[in-house]
Design a protein around this nucleic acid. Structure first.
Lengths: 285, 285
DNA sequence: GAGCGATTATACGTAATCCGCATAACCACG
DNA sequence: CGTGGTTATGCGGATTACGTATAATCGCTC
C-alpha cells in the first residue's frame, strides 16, 4: 500500500517480485476477495486492504510487544515477581525481605498476594504466581513445581485457656492423644490434616477429628468454644487471642517445614536473589 | 499444557509427535529458554510457558476476530458503511435515503460524516470512508477511487444583495466577466477553482480572483462585504443569508456534477443498495 | 532386578513448499 | 508502433517440513 507497486514493495521486503505476487495471491484467495487492483500503473488498494491494515496493525503491535516481553522473561530480565504468602507468616519471613529486595532490584515490581496455601497452589497452576510460600503442605503439589525448604520450625499446640493442659509449663504431643482435633478444610490448607496425622502417629496415637474450619481465626474461635485442640507452626506463638493458650510442643520430632514453591523452568537472577534473601532471613530467625 | 504430554497433544493437533517436538524446540530456541521440562512422565510447563499463554491468548483472539471481520467484509457481509458528505447537500440527497436504507439493511450501521471535499478525499485515502459524496472535484482523486455521477445540477451565482446584477431577473455567466471571484481554498474544496475557471472559459473570459475562503459561510460573508461574486451548485439556492442574492445561471453549459466516490474493490450488496438509493433520489429531485 | 508401558528425542527418506530467474502478457505514453 | 513500466506465470533448485521407524530414558510392577 505504501509503495503502490509490487516491484518497489518487493525490493523493500527483500524478496523478488514474483514471490510477493504469489504471497498476495495466496492471501487474497484465502480471504475470498482481492486486496489490490492491478494495472499497468502499479497496484491500487481496495477497501478490503484498508480494512485489513486497520484491523491487523494493532494485532501485530500487540504480538510484537508480547514477544518482546517473553524474550525478556526468557533471558532472565523479569519485570515482575508475584509471590503468594500466608498472611500470618509474612511478619517473620517476608516483610523484612521486601525492603532489601527493592534496594537490589528497584526496577522489578514485587507483587505480594495474601492467600491460603490452597489458593496459592491453584494460582501456581494457573501461572498467576511465580513463587509460593507455604508449609510442607507444598508436598501436595507433587512434581508440578520446584520445592525448597526454607526453614524448619517448631510446632505449637492450641488449647482453650481453661483447658487443664494449659496450666502446665510444657506439653508433649502424646498428652493430646485423647483430645478432639480441629483442622482447616482440605481445600484451604491441603495436607494439613495429613501432617497432623503423621505427627500423632509418631507420638503413638491416632488423632480424633471433631471439625473443620476455614481460617486460623475460625480455628481459634471453635477451639475456645468446644475445648478442642489443634497444632500450628510456631510463628503464630505471639498471636494468641483471648481465651486461647498456645504452647510449644516439647517433642523433638514435631516440626513444621516452611517451604518455598517456585514455577518450573529457568530461575531469573532477580528471582534467585529474592529466594536467597528469604532463605537467609528464615535461617536467621 | 492442557494435555501434559507431547504424544496426546500431537494427536489432538493432528500431527505426529516428532513434528510437535521439533516445533516446540524451534520456539524454545527462538525464545532462548525452555517452555517445558521433559520427563518420562510427560512434559511440565515452565513459568515461561504460562507467561506465553497469558500474553498470546488475547493476541490470537484479536487476530481471529479481525480475520472473521475481514472475511465477512470480503464476502460482502459488511457490518458498516461510512459515508462522507458535504453538510449542505445532505438535505436534498442524503437525508431521504437514510431511512429507506435502514429498512432494507437494519443490521448495517450507517456512519455519516460531514466533511469538506478535501477532508473526504483524505479520509478515503486513509481508508476511513467507504463512500464520499462530493462535486465533480472528485475528478481530482484521479484513479484512486471509483467515480459515478449521481446527478447533474445547475449553477447559481452568488452576489451581494446590493449588486447591480442582483436586480435583474436572469443572469448569464458572461455578465460576470468583469467581477472579482472568491473561491474556497484548494485544501478544502480541491478543484473548485479549476471548475470555475473552465466554466468562465466556456463563457469566453478568464475569471479574476480576489480571495480564498475556508467555508461557504465565509464565502457569503466576504462576498457581502467586498461585492465579489462566486459560483455554487444550485442545491444551495434556498440557503441565502441576509445580504446575499443567489441567482440561477441561464447558461446551458453551466452545470455541476454531483459525484459519488467509492473505495476500489468488490461492491458489497448493502453498499450497492445504498448507492442505488442515492442515485434514484438524486435523479428524482 | 527384569520387563513392560509410557514418555521424548533423533535419523532418514520423501513430499511438499517456497524462492528466484527468466519470460510472458499487458498497458500507457510518446 | 516501439519503449519502459507494470504484474503474472513456468520452471528448476534448494530448502523446509513431515511422518515412519527407532533410540534412549524413566517409573512402575512383578
Amino acid at each position: 500500500m505504501e509503495e503502490g507497486s509490487l516491484n518497489r514493495a518487493a525490493a523493500r521486503l527483500r524478496v523478488s517480485q514474483p514471490t510477493l505476487t504469489r504471497q498476495l495471491q495466496a492471501i487474497e484467495q484465502e480471504l475470498g476477495a482481492p486486496l489490490f487492483e492491478r494495472g499497468s500503473h502499479g497496484v491500487l488498494p481496495t477497501g478490503l486492504a484498508h480494512h485489513l491494515r486497520e484491523s491487523m496493525t494493532p494485532v501485530i503491535g500487540a504480538y510484537d510487544r508480547a514477544w518482546a516481553e517473553l524474550t525478556a522473561h526468557a533471558h532472565g530480565r523479569q519485570s515482575q515477581i508475584r509471590v503468594g504468602y500466608l498472611g500470618l507468616s509474612a511478619a517473620r519471613f517476608l516483610t523484612p525481605v521486601v525492603g532489601q529486595f527493592r534496594e537490589i532490584h528497584p526496577d522489578v515490581r514485587l507483587w505480594l498476594f495474601d492467600q491460603t496455601p490452597g489458593e496459592q497452589l491453584q494460582a501456581l497452576r494457573k501461572g498467576d504466581l511465580d513463587l509460593a510460600l507455604i508449609g510442607q503442605e507444598g508436598a501436595m503439589a507433587g512434581d508440578d513445581f520446584y520445592q525448597q525448604r526454607v526453614a524448619r520450625i517448631g510446632v505449637i499446640a492450641v488449647l482453650a485457656a481453661g483447658h487443664p493442659l494449659a496450666e502446665k509449663d510444657t506439653i508433649s504431643l502424646s498428652e493430646l492423644s485423647t483430645e478432639g482435633f480441629i483442622v482447616p478444610a482440605e481445600s484451604a490448607v491441603p495436607g494439613r490434616k495429613l501432617w497432623i496425622q503423621q505427627l500423632c502417629r509418631k507420638a503413638g496415637f491416632s488423632p480424633q477429628w471433631v471439625g473443620e474450619t476455614d481460617s486460623v481465626t475460625d480455628t481459634f474461635a471453635r477451639i475456645a468454644a468446644e475445648q478442642a485442640v489443634s497444632l500450628l507452626p510456631d510463628y503464630l506463638l505471639q498471636t494468641a487471642p483471648p481465651g486461647i493458650t498456645l504452647m510449644r510442643l516439647s517433642d523433638r520430632c514435631a516440626f513444621w517445614d516452611f517451604t518455598l514453591l517456585r514455577q518450573r523452568g529457568r530461575l531469573a537472577p532477580a528471582c534467585r536473589d529474592l529466594i536467597r534473601l528469604i532463605a537467609e532471613t528464615a535461617k536467621a530467625s
